[in-house]
């Protein structure tokens, strides 16, 4: 069985603990063995930069090194963790001096950043690690009669250097959702507007103003639910009129899980799936 390192970010912590079950179940459904990188630490979340940007390099060089030590690539379902870790990888791979200095300090923990591990997010994991054909084979049943609005979130499409698909005309999310049997609603208003998650504790009202926009756009366009790959977008946008789910939750259901097993009952805004 193919193996991959599961990076535990804050989306597996506290009230979001079920995201870990969703993730491991998803990997199981994909026929991939997930190895939890137990000593991995927070990616910085775009917040530790406010203390010291260098720590963010250190944290993520170390996170990647932990995967490399296990001989696996690194997988995170979170858009933001993905972007920050991938950005750090780019920085380390293009700056030998930085890499060397980080490695000197990492050596004390018996770790080394080599640059061999790839960084995966759910979307490129399905396309490049599992393969779309294999993915389709693993879908057991169709979730029909539901209109789904794909919502990428920002950090899988920007910055361009780490985007998991063509950032101008991405299609990967459609390609992942279509095999589930759902009807896709694209081109809705504010589909590329940010969910506002990262303003939650800097300017809470800003988050409120933004989170509702893509939801309203999707609703207006006739979507029953919004589907995002990102657990943070999910968290930011759950609790309004229009329901939102994570793509992996839908995949798990299509692979045989009950809605409850897929954590769908934990949604603040209720979702009804017909199977």
């Amino acid at each position: 069985m193919k193996k991959i390192g599961i990076y535990p970010g804050c989306c597996f912590q506290g009230a979001d603990i079920h995201n870990y079950d969703i993730t491991t179940k998803f990997l199981e459904n994909m026929g991939v063995e997930g190895i939890l990188l137990e000593r991995a630490a927070c990616c910085g979340g775009g917040v530790i930069d406010e203390t010291n940007k260098k720590i963010v390099y250190g944290l993520n060089a170390r996170n990647i090194a932990l995967a490399e030590k296990e001989g696996v690539d690194l997988y995170t379902p979170c858009n933001t963790c993905y972007m920050i870790i991938a950005k750090t990888k780019l920085a380390l791979d293009s700056d030998p001096e930085l890499k060397e200095k980080v490695n000197e300090i990492l050596a004390e923990e018996g770790l080394e950043y080599k640059g061999t591990a790839k960084i995966y997010h759910t979307l490129n994991l399905i396309r490049d690690f599992v393969g779309l054909d294999e993915y389709k084979k693993r879908i057991k049943r169709q979730i029909s009669g539901i209109k789904v609005a794909p919502y990428y979130g920002c950090h899988v499409l920007a910055p361009n250097e780490v985007a998991v698909d063509d950032p101008e005309n991405p299609t990967i999310l459609r390609e992942v959702l279509e095999p589930l049997g759902v009807e896709i609603i694209e081109g809705y208003k504010d589909e590329d507007t940010c969910c506002g998650y990262h303003a939650r504790f800097t300017e809470p009202e800003q988050k409120e103003r933004l989170a509702i926009k893509p939801l309203d756009g999707a609703k207006e366009a006739g979507a029953d639910i919004v589907a995002t790959p990102c657990p943070l977008c999910h968290k930011a946008m759950d609790g309004y009129d229009e329901p939102i789910l994570q793509v992996t939750q839908l995949i798990n259901v299509a692979c045989g899980a009950t809605p409850e097993e897929a954590g769908i009952n934990l949604n603040k805004t209720e979702v009804k799936l017909s199977l």
Partner: peptide, 12 residues
């Protein structure tokens, strides 16, 4: 600064 959502679009 506190209203920025760190979306990275400006950099892109």
């Amino acid at each position: 600064i506190w209203e920025c959502v760190q979306c990275q679009m400006c950099f892109a």
